[in-house]
Each structure stands twice: as structure tokens, then as C-alpha cells.
Amino acid sequence: MDVGIVSYGAYVPRYRITPEEIGKVWGENGKAMGKGLFIEQKSVPAPDEDVVTISVAAARAMMARTDVDPREIGALYVGSESHPYAVKPTSTIVAEAIEATPDLTAADMEFACKAGTAGIQVCMGLVGSGMIEYGVAIGADTSQGAPGDALEYSASAGGAAYLIGKKNIIAKINRTISYTTDTPDFWRREGQDYPSHGGRFTGEPAYFRHITNATQRLLADAGTKPGDYDYAVFHQPNGKFPTRVAAMMGFTEAQITKGLMTPYIGNTYSGAVPIGLASVLDIAKPGDRILVVSYGSGAGSDAFDITVTDRIRKYKREAAPTVEKIVSNVKYVDYATYAKFKGKIKMEE
């Protein structure tokens, strides 16, 4: 029996900061930096938002669009590199908030920016094997860039949730493959506030190698070519990398535009590909074929070959706002406010 997406939901905080505003503080040409990265602005979580609240918002949007009883959910995974607790799962809080407790398994995942898609793969396995009826995979982050670091121009907040099952699927996941190596291009040690990265090392041997290998392997397995896909969603740490990787492999701008959200919200890390896919599903029609390739530093890529089903016509997409709608509610903040919101200002405890 086919396994696929039964429902989905996304969430992005409403606050935004521009590269120009960030550059102003650090004596850099932020505008040029933004242009180079293809980033117009990035989302900023409110002080009362974190990966838990973002995951819950996305999961509730996902549940609003389906009649699935939350008690039928047998597994829930939240993939993130910014879980609010080092020890104590995000996933249990989300499960409680969507009333999926107590008869399910839950765990938090971490694989830099691809923990969300890793969760989808795990759910596919559990559903496909018949161990569970439905599984929830969420990718969400409130990623941190060290003040003054290049990452600060892109690291943002957002997430999306996917209900994986066999019944009433709106999109069939035809196949998934992964490409994984030990490549330390980006990391954060236990107890450190901000991640570190290998600079230009994050490009060629990391992002590009893994994305292209995963994509080519998937296309070979599926016997497809880039032109067979209506949409392609590549991991998007900025706007530049996915645009370039798409061009390298023969995908057109038209294929990637709908799933490329980073220019408007920044890099939501584990949320990036899930939000991009949500944006595509918002307008997808039966028969549309979608290629999805995530990338997580450290490093690995998960590639998915997806076909939208007829069921999407009956799907209650309107029960939750589209990604386009979500990202249209915007409030710009200055750097000082951003620093306060993100806890970058040391305050009396």
C-alpha cells in the first residue's frame, strides 16, 4: 500500500529583520550581503516563541486540515537543532498539545538542517511496516547565528509538520533515498550558544556534494529526469545555494521558485525544506510531481520523489493558512529589538 502525506501545516513567526539592519550594527554592507545570499529578510521569533511553540503551531495547522483522530497517531518526531531543552523532549509537549498522548512513541531528532526530513523517513518506515497507522514528522528551528557572524544574516525561525500515513494521502511518496558521509562543515558543541562552521568548506564538499549525489541517485532509481518534475525543493540555507544547485543539475527557476522561501523568511534550518514543500503543496494539483532534497550538515541529504494524488481536491487546505498567507503577516524589528527577542542581551536573572 502507498505511503504518503495525509496532511501538513506550516508556521513562521511574524517578526522580520533585514540584512541591511544587521549589517549596520557590524559595519558591513548588509544590503550587499543580502543580495549575495539572495535574502531579503529573515524571520525572528517573539520572546515567547521557541521550537516547541512553532512545532505546535505547525502541528495544529496540520491537524486542522484533516479528520484524523489524534489518538490514531502512533509516532511523533520533532527534528531541530534548537530544541529548548538539551534533555527533555520537544516531541512530548507537541504530542500533548495535539492530544495524541499517551499511546504513541515520540522522540526528538537532530541532524542539523535535515532532522525534519529524517523524521518523515522514520514515519514512512513505521507506517509502511504496519507498526503504526499515522506518524507525525516536524522540522522546526529557532536557529542562532553568532552576533557578527555571516550566519546571522540568514539564521531564522519557522517549521512545518507532516502527517504520514496510508489512508487518504494527498501526496504519495514514491521513494526516498539518503546520501550520508562524515563531513564536519557545521556544528555546535554541547553547551555552546552558537554554532560554528567551516566557512567556504560548507559549500562544495558539503552542501553541493550531498545534494547532487542524493538527487542523482534518486533520479537514477526512479528513472526520471529533472524535466519530469513540476516542482523541486532543495535545502535552502540562503537563496543562492539552491538556485545554483538547481541550475547545476538542470532544474529551471520555474521548478524551484514556489518552494524557495528562504529569500522571504531566512534559513529556518530543519524547517526549511518542510516549509518549502508546504508552499508547493499549497498550490499543487493532482498528478504534480515534486522532488524534495534536504541537506543536513555533518552531513547528509534525504531525497524524496513525490506525486500529488487526486485526494488533494477534497483536502481541507483552507482550514489553515497557506505559507504565502503566513509569510505576508510581517512586522519589521530593528537590531536592538531582535537582540532582545533572541536573548542576546544579558539580563539579570
Partner: peptide
């Protein structure tokens, strides 16, 4: 659902309802 408060930087985080404008 939002953060309501916490028991300090090493304490438990408490979540609860707040209200936001309807979409």
C-alpha cells in the same frame, strides 16, 4: 500555544495559551 514563563535559565519552561488575531 506560547511560553508563559520559566523557572529560570536552568528550570522548566511553562507553556500555555495566549491569543493571536484570527487569520
Amino acid at each position: 500555544l506560547r511560553k508563559i514563563d520559566d523557572d529560570g535559565p536552568s528550570g522548566v519552561i511553562h507553556y500555555g495559551f495566549k491569543f493571536a488575531p484570527c487569520e
